[in-house]
């Protein structure tokens, strides 16, 4: 299949990868750039394991065409690892027993970093809404939510 050289701004660096025109951002991140922290779980935007930031907003890497991401800022879990918000989220998850198989975890970290960056504290419902598109099959979400509320919380649960 025809390939073109694509230039993407990933984690603050311009990176080049030979790419099919129909490749998704997730294809390029994983197979082209070997940034494997973003996981492939469904390719339909349902599971959330591939969540990254595009221009600072949470995005499904499997639903973004790589070619359409040119000129945008892409931040993956690998790039977020440098940030203070991520470190705090990661520590909270690890210490609260919120990690099991870990396959959904990078996507959840990205979603929670987005919530943390919004500022202003987060209720349990805010946390649940922020990860509502990240399927975790192991934990039942309780410890993930507790971890995030312990970090960002304040307000009590405000229902749904």
């Amino acid at each position: 299949m025809k390939r073109t050289l694509l230039e993407l701004n990933v984690n603050g660096e311009l990176q080049q990868a030979p790419t099919r025109p129909t490749a998704t951002l997730l294809d390029v991140l994983r197979d082209g750039l070997h940034l494997t922290g973003s996981k492939r779980g469904c390719d339909q935007g349902v599971c959330g394991a591939c969540t990254v930031l595009v221009d600072g907003r949470p995005a499904r890497a499997c639903l973004m065409l790589a070619v359409d991401c040119q000129g945008r800022r892409v931040t993956t879990i690998e790039g977020l690892n440098e940030s203070g918000e991520a470190a705090a989220v990661q520590q909270a998850l690890a210490e609260n027993g919120a990690i099991q198989c870990g396959y959904c975890t990078p996507g959840i970290v990205v979603a929670l970093v987005d919530l943390a960056r919004a500022g202003g504290g987060a209720s349990e419902n805010d946390v649940r809404r922020s990860i509502s598109g990240n399927i975790c099959r192991c934990s039942g979400y309780v410890k993930i939510v507790e971890a995030a509320v312990s970090l960002l919380g304040g307000k009590a649960s405000d229902g749904r």
Binding site: G45, R57, A59, R60, A111, D114, S132, G133, N134
Partner: peptide, 9 residues
């Protein structure tokens, strides 16, 4: 609608 990442794009 859907979830935050879908709503963002």
């Amino acid at each position: 609608i859907a979830s935050p990442a879908i709503r963002a794009f």
